[in-house]
Design a protein around this nucleic acid. Structure first.
Lengths: 196, 196
DNA sequence: TTAATAAGTCTCCAAACGAGGACTTAGGAG
DNA sequence: CTCCTAAGTCCTCGTTTGGAGACTTATTAA
């Protein structure tokens, strides 16, 4: 029987709740994740989650903003030869998603965006304003915004097809198998190059 | 107060339940859809939904198999010039998804596949065995299976980014704006053509 | 005509959920 | 030493969920 009252010593409870929440969102989506489940995963009383973060939507907001670091993505694209930006972006994205058999926290954002309007709006705002916009201005092609959005759509689709639907051909393929196919596509979207 | 007991005359209740369920799955996903909600949308008692279809998973199976007609997709790809198969496939897929402001029932399948492991497994089976497999054998390129899966991933990603996340650039773009970008990509995936 | 079955409604149940109130204990500032 | 606040737990409320049983009425085949 756990004691009541505050624990002795310094605490990292807040961080462990965020980590547990990220994992829940990744494996069960927004709807499927319960405040109680997050609390249980963090080894904490559910009322404490509420005390720290308020509603479930606020908890998701916290997790999402902690997970999305636009500077990383933009740096990954900017650093290096421009004609390999697509490949670097794909590699960065795949590394974010993690192993096929065990999708990382970042996949939870996509998953949650599909079942919660709030998550979708948050992701739309974060992605569109902070990432895709910058991406579009760094490649000054015509219709750069559309190109950046399409690049994102290919990456999101890869995530959904590989980690959620789990199409055999995609789960069997490793990063190095996917790169030669997907990288040129993303590259062409970014630069606005029409292909054959 | 509705009368109890069987209604006189012929009945189309089963069909209207399937239609209502398809709409619920499309707008709220698998988890977000409740048996009671389906019943209410069909103007029917919730116990009747259970009597007809059993569990929610069985109801989804019914809806999905009624919605996925592999022959249509394959016909759309097969009929016409081979080098325009990608374009025809993209057009067919976009027509399935319906209007941006009001996603059709087909989008519910993708949405649900992200929510529910059962929905994902069903979609994986239907897509992989019935559609992608056939698609791969009709284009006998090397790694045709992977190519077909990647084509599917681009289409699914377009659906998620446009209808769920609702990226501005994609909701603003019409079918004719998307075709010149996406069709060549899908075409290259299908034929296995490496691009520049 | 009658028995079986399909179609339909009402009511209940146990579980899980989000939310919140009341309480207890530790750390830190005065 | 003494408050005040942060950290933590317990219990409850109202709602919704998927599921299931019991009952009623129309259709249909023997």
């Amino acid at each position: 029987m756990a004691r009541t009252g505050r624990r002795p010593g310094p605490t990292s409870t807040r961080e462990s709740i965020v980590a547990a929440a990220a994992e829940c969102f990744a494996t069960q989506g927004f709807d499927g994740t319960s405040m109680r489940g997050v609390a249980a995963a963090a080894g904490v009383d559910s009322a404490l989650v509420r005390r720290f973060f308020g509603t479930k939507e606020q908890l998701f907001t916290e997790v999402a903003t902690a997970l999305i670091v636009p500077e990383r993505a933009l740096a990954a694209v900017a650093a290096g030869a421009p004609d390999a930006a697509g490949e670097r972006l794909v590699r960065y994205f795949l590394s974010l998603l993690g192993d096929v058999s065990q999708p990382g926290p970042f996949f939870g954002l996509i998953r949650s965006a599909v079942d919660s309007e709030h998550a979708a709006a948050l992701l739309r705002r974060l992605l569109a304003d902070r990432v895709l916009g910058e991406l579009a201005t760094s490649f000054r092609s015509e219709n750069a915004e559309l190109g950046a959005a399409l690049a994102a759509s290919q990456l999101v689709g890869l995530a959904v097809a590989r980690y959620a639907v789990r199409l055999d051909a995609l789960t069997a393929a490793g990063t190095e198998d996917l790169i030669p196919w997907v990288a040129p596509v993303v590259q062409s979207y970014l630069t606005g190059t029409r292909i054959s």
